[in-house]
Amino acid sequence: MHRTRILDHAVLILGALFLTLPVVVAFMTSSHEAAAIHSKGLMLSPGGHFVDTYEKVLTRQGGFTGQVTGARMMMNSFILGVGFALGKIVLSMLAAYAIVYFRFRFATLAFWVIFTTLLLPLEVRIMPSYEVMSGLGLINTYTGLIVPLLASATGTFYFRQFFKSVPEELLEAARIDGAGPFKFFIDVLVPLSKTMIAAIFIIMFVYGWNQYLWPMLMTTDERFFTLMRGIKQILQVWIGSQIPDYNEAFALAVLAMLPPVLVVVVFQSWFIKGLTESDK
């Protein structure tokens, strides 16, 4: 009994190390100077340049135009992530609501059409989407960054499944209680979907935060650069001497990790609370 427990712990510790070490290494390395990293490779011990590196990364004007700072890129990524997640949730909830609760012709067909778009990733329709956005003059705007990605088959599918599991009697009780379609949605369906919303927010925020290809196409103006592009850019553009600013790239990577971690931590507790508390 005792021996297996030690073994269990060993396995768990190994697993934990395996998952956290890269993060620790990135964090530690980011607090050294570029030259030191270049000569000694990755670091496991803290260096003495934590504050100045991070401050520099967040505030230094960079890029060709000198208009973009790390903080600015972070904000852009955040706007993209949140706008993306919220927009997807709102749109897919409304779509699922229509499919599940309204009897209109071809509702099932509509659902399957939406569902099959799951098979088409963004990359497939990226050129036509770009075409449309540039035609509308939405290049280099937040609208252009966010809106074309909002339609979500995944989200619609999850909400559809969830709405279908809500007992019919709730709708009937609400109808007798004088709640119209709008009231029922706001007063009953949305509160009941809390856990689902939290789950989808986590997924979609991270997805939006990590977008790379689309922002690269849609934004040529550096004021709209996201963190993901920034990291890439450091190694290409922000070369001070011959040595790339490894420390800054690592610092930016660490910063890029923080918001998704935060979102997961916050919404996960909400999500789990919802799961354990709610009974439909």
């Binding site: 009937e172 609400a174 109808r175 009941l192």
Partner: peptide
Amino acid sequence: PADRDIAMVFQNYALYPHMSVRENLAY
């Protein structure tokens, strides 16, 4: 249904799970 001036009690009660008893009654 809302305009028929009737009230219905369902087999599975159909209470709104996210509302307190008071809110259920008042809705």
